[in-house]
Computed example of a mutant assay.
Amino acid sequence: MREIPTSLDPTVVAEIDRRLRALTIDHAVRIPWAIESGSRAWGFPSPDSDYDCRFIFVRGRERYLDLWPSRDVLDTPLDATFDVNGWDLAKVIKLIAKGNATAIEWLRSPIVYSGDAAFRDALLSFAGHVVERGAIGRHYLHVARRQQAGRPTLKRFFYVLRPAIALRWLAVHPDEAVPPMDLPTLLQESSVPRSVHDAASDLIAAKAVTRELGTGDAPTILHRFVGDEMLAAEHFETAMPQKDPQEVREFANRFFTSCIS
């Protein structure tokens, strides 16, 4: 599958495609999932946003039996436009089993450079089976706090707002643990007040046409919303695991073996 919006620079997309092909050849791997992450996939890009391609790669079965395993990260030279790197499937599975939301988000990106839908769906199903809501909630709560600790800018505020709305999404979807990746979908699916939705949409629109939003402040209504959602999510800090860790590890092992068979 391939989902590339017309807003992406076709020259840049072609170079990302070239880099991905080169990685498969140079490292003898296959890449069943390659997506865009960062502000473009999160739904609030600026005109000068770089491209953050992330991918999952799989080695031949025999390579996983090597006494001296290869690196579990592959990347290409980083510059002002391109940030292309990926993780080995084994790394991704272990991270998901630990409740790493970043690895799960890659599976829900709205921008797909190349992908095997069945591979993606299998990983999402695996995540749904093993992930702890408490771990995901803590992830987004800690991301929001970490961003709040930095120098206040409108750009940084987006990195607080998205996890805050992800926390709201978890609150209104009590039986699910894998929120959408992009901010517009989170807004749509989180039953936020219309005033919050409109203020966030206006801020997204402003960022889309401004190369640098500067150090101005976000609307008071959004600051209040963020504070309320983070306070309501404090319970994730003490949430106890609901799944048996040993059973999760065994399930992860079986799933990994099925992927490389």
Rank of each mutant, 00 (worst) to 15 (best):
M1E: 14
D9G: 04
L23E: 03
L23R: 10
L23V: 13
I31D: 00
G38V: 03
S49M: 02
I56Y: 04
F57V: 02
V58Y: 02
Y64W: 05
Y64V: 09
P69Y: 03
S70M: 02
D72H: 12
D75E: 15
T76G: 07
D79Q: 07
D79K: 09
A80V: 13
G86K: 06
G86Y: 05
L89H: 02
K94P: 00
E105T: 08
W106E: 00
S109N: 07
S109L: 03
V112Y: 03
A117S: 11
D121Q: 15
A122K: 15
L124W: 01
S125M: 02
G128P: 11
G134T: 05
A135Y: 10
G137K: 07
H139Y: 14
H139N: 08
Q147F: 15
T153W: 09
K155L: 03
F158G: 09
L161Y: 07
I165Y: 07
W169Y: 13
V172Y: 11
P180E: 04
M181T: 13
P184R: 08
T185H: 07
L186F: 08
L187N: 07
S195E: 15
S195W: 03
A199H: 14
D202E: 15
V209E: 11
E234I: 00
T238K: 04
P241G: 11
R249P: 00
E250K: 10
A252S: 14
R254P: 01
